[in-house]
Design a protein around this nucleic acid. Structure first.
Lengths: 190, 190
DNA sequence: GCGTCATGAGACATAAATGTATCATTTGAG
DNA sequence: CTCAAATGATACATTTATGTCTCATGACGC
């Protein structure tokens, strides 16, 4: 008797990303309105705020994994895989804040989201170590820092895109340059 | 009849930074409890949630300005001023999320906070331009990106500190290196 | 020690968010 | 077209957050 039409569910999730992104305190009524859906329908699809939050986290995670898998399909090295991943993730960075934020309160869902997040972190660290072995990063730089810088430069790139100052491709290129060689004057510079 | 004891006010602000930092949806009762203060007292000091938010933004802004002013007191160049500023801001980065977040809803307070935030952004951009003129950054790199990277690497540094993987000094040094020369292999590396 | 004033605790009223139930209407599959 | 299922609108009960008030208590200046 419930949730067969995927349209409503998708619209709600999309609206929730937008509205919660602007204001984490927004009410479920706000979400329903933005989704162009009745408040009751929202409750038919999601038990409550927590359930919705968990769905958002799940969606963000799936999008992230799909984008990375697609982007790294034909990478020939870990270094290139990292670069391609950054390029691919920039456009969806605005939905990833959700994974870092401990937005899910329910213990059961929390665990699931947390596990996925931890896994993502570990995979990034592994990729960084591999790239380090390929000579992309200095051995004197802690892996934890590289991963942290990767994430945050990714977010910086998205912010640049959002402000209209660059395209996703341009912003990703800037972030990659910053991560690997920095913003100092290069040989090609006058 | 109101707000003469600064102790309560300070305790509330401190608690609010902590609690809201962990959960923006926290209630004022949560804040009061963490502050070890009665809920009524909180309302005696702050008209409501918005007033408290504005106070937090004001505090964060003041701390930022004071730290930067102190750190750059005897800088001999804009480049050095930027480096010293980064070093100085890392320990208080956890209170700066507040300025970026559009947490203040009241129109009147909003304007004030927004103005201060805009001014900070402009000052950073000016400093970046000056450092660029000094040859610290390449002329081919957009100022907007440098500023964005500065902010986000700052935040990355704080996260590294929070995770216990580095001291503020170490983290700031990593962030500075990343920004200026990147994380690639250096000559000193084997 | 005295008096003042902020505070803490609690009661209270109000507002807002949430969750559920009902029912007429619409949608989409067959 | 027809029917079943999902939806929107509405009403309702419940919970939670908020804001105000009162009063006894404790802290601090004098």
């Amino acid at each position: 008797m419930t949730q067969i039409r995927p349209q409503s569910r998708d619209a709600i999730i999309e609206a929730a990303f937008q509205v919660f992104g602007a204001d984490p305190r927004a009410s479920l009524a706000d979400i329903a309105e933005r989704a162009g859906v009745g408040r009751a329908t929202l409750h038919r699809h999601f038990k409550g705020r927590d359930d919705l939050m968990a769905a958002l986290a799940h969606t963000a995670m799936a999008e992230l994994e799909a984008a990375v898998a697609e982007a790294t399909r034909d990478a020939t090295s870990y270094s290139e895989a990292l670069r391609l991943s950054m390029q691919a993730i920039v456009p969806l960075a605005d939905r990833q804040w959700f994974l870092a934020a401990e937005a899910v309160e329910d213990a059961e869902h929390r665990r699931e989201v947390s596990d996925g997040y931890t896994r993502q972190k570990r995979e990034l660290a592994d990729a960084v170590d591999a790239a380090k072995a390929e000579g992309l990063f200095g051995h004197d730089v802690p892996t934890a820092w590289i991963a942290e810088a990767f994430d945050n430069l990714l977010y910086a790139a998205w912010q640049l895109v959002r402000s209209g100052e660059a395209t996703p491709t341009q912003a990703a290129a800037l972030a990659w340059r910053t991560l690997t060689t920095g913003l100092g004057v290069t040989k090609s510079d006058k």
